[in-house]
């Protein structure tokens, strides 16, 4: 029975890969959703290349967000940056109220249409969960451990790199996981401003009233999110087990 979840995920991965590599195999399943003479499989670009582009966009935005958010959280949790701590907490709180569509739409006049506004929106949106989780974990580390490290004569940098960050890693990873899953779904909205993501398939479906397009775009993104979420959860468990 314990193997069942793995089996299901393997099956989902296999289905996703089959669909992306040989989309025609799924045509019979999606056929009832399309009108009689409409195309069933997205035909204005390869699903595989859109998927890769989608993932690259999310990867680029999340990596940048991770570097910035973790650095900022480290900064405000040091004595030198402590002045910024209350402010950064309220900023995170306020930042989360900005709707992704608004961020996207407001970035367009500044940087133009295409990938850039999407990257900006995903970056800004990805910052918050990572910053919040990193800050929480760094400020709630067991005091005894940190004091012990200080007692053995470790410098501030040594304590950070050898004690604090490794201990905080699982929580930081959970922030990254949340950020990735939100970005995967939000990236689809980027196609309203001409970014090449899987949202293109969904929007093409909405515009031509072709439900088959909407469903395949939605299902690919959903499957990617489930698989990546599980993969990162597994990574987290690994780091918890090690520390």
């Amino acid at each position: 029975m314990r193997a069942l979840p793995y089996l299901l995920r393997g099956l989902l991965l296999a289905l996703l890969m089959t669909f992306l590599l040989v989309p025609q195999t799924m045509e019979p399943l999606l056929r009832p959703l399309a009108q009689s003479n409409a195309p069933v499989i997205y035909n204005q670009g390869s699903l595989l290349s859109l998927t890769v582009q989608h993932l690259l966009t999310v990867l680029a935005a999340t990596s940048a967000a991770t570097v910035v958010a973790v650095s900022l959280a480290i900064l405000v949790s040091r004595p030198a940056g402590a002045e910024f701590l209350p402010l950064s907490r309220s900023l995170v709180n306020i930042g989360q109220t900005f709707p992704p569509v608004a961020v996207l739409a407001l970035a367009v006049p500044v940087v133009g249409f295409g990938e850039k506004p999407t990257l900006i929106a995903l970056f800004l949106y990805g910052l918050l969960p990572i910053f919040e989780s990193t800050l929480t974990s760094l400020t709630t580390l067991p005091r005894a451990v940190v004091e012990a490290a200080r007692g053995t004569g470790m410098t501030g940098a040594q304590r950070l790199l050898q004690i604090e960050l490794p201990l905080a890693l699982p929580v930081i990873l959970s922030g990254i996981r949340l950020s990735v899953v939100i970005s995967l779904a939000t990236a689809t909205i980027g196609s309203t401003v001409a970014a090449r993501t899987l949202g293109e398939v969904i929007i093409a479906g909405l515009q031509s009233n072709n439900l088959a397009f909407v469903v395949q775009g939605g299902l690919i993104v959903g499957a990617l999110a489930v698989l990546i979420y599980d993969g990162l959860s597994a990574l987290e468990r690994l780091t918890v087990a090690r520390s």
Binding site: L206, V214, G217, V221
Partner: peptide, 17 residues
Amino acid sequence: NIVQTIPSIALFGILIA
């Protein structure tokens, strides 16, 4: 949880039918 993974524009579209 699975509902949450479906992108919003797709879910809006899927419900049309």
